[in-house]
């Protein structure tokens, strides 16, 4: 039973990460583009919180590296940001899991802001300080958190209790 759940979880992790990579690679119309949520970061935080034995800094780093390459950005930037977010989540996951949903969302917001600040510092050093639009993705990412939480939680329950 436990093995089956683990196996299903593994597939779910892989599928959600792939889906996040695809969604993040999609092109949106100009005016929506900067408001898009950072889906991959939310997914990585979710799995570091819920399956810390499986998804950690390593997975986050590889996922970030793939984003860097596919978006033609600086190699190592997203990798660094995502592994940082995963690391903080891993360090605190027992406390965060116990928190009410609202405070969890707050924690995600803090992680997102930290990630943005780190990325901004690095981009500033390369001489490409981002514009204000760089921050526009925050609200959508935070709104996205409870959504993804509910959705994946439901899939996992279904995986645990096969009908």
């Amino acid at each position: 039973m436990n093995d089956v759940a683990n196996w299903r979880d593994g597939w779910l992790i892989l599928t959600t990460l792939l889906a996040a990579l695809i969604i993040d690679s999609m092109v949106l119309p100009q005016f929506l583009g900067s408001f898009r949520p950072d889906v991959l970061a939310v997914i990585v935080i979710y799995w570091s919180l819920m399956a810390p034995q499986r998804v950690g800094v390593g997975v986050a780093w590889v996922a970030g590296l793939l984003v860097d390459v596919s978006s033609s950005g600086l190699i190592g930037l997203h990798a660094m940001v995502l592994s940082m977010q995963a690391y903080i989540t891993l360090m605190l996951y027992q406390q965060i899991r116990m928190l009410p949903r609202f405070q969890q969302t707050l924690f995600v917001l803090i992680l997102m802001v930290l990630g943005k600040l780190l990325a901004m510092a690095v981009l500033g050093m390369t001489g490409r300080l981002p514009t204000i639009e760089f921050w526009f993705s925050l609200p959508a990412s935070v709104v996205f958190w409870p959504l993804i939480y509910a959705l994946v939680q439901r899939w996992r329950k279904r995986a645990l209790l096969p009908s």
Binding site: Q53, V57, I75, M80, S83, M84
Partner: peptide, 25 residues
């Protein structure tokens, strides 16, 4: 999850990322 091992891994990845960014840029 074993915290010290994760911290070590994280610091290592941080280092690799930094080296990669410098090498790339």
């Amino acid at each position: 999850v074993k915290a010290p091992a994760i911290t070590l891994r994280f610091v290592l990845l941080l280092l690799i990322s930094t080296v990669a960014m410098v090498a790339d840029h």
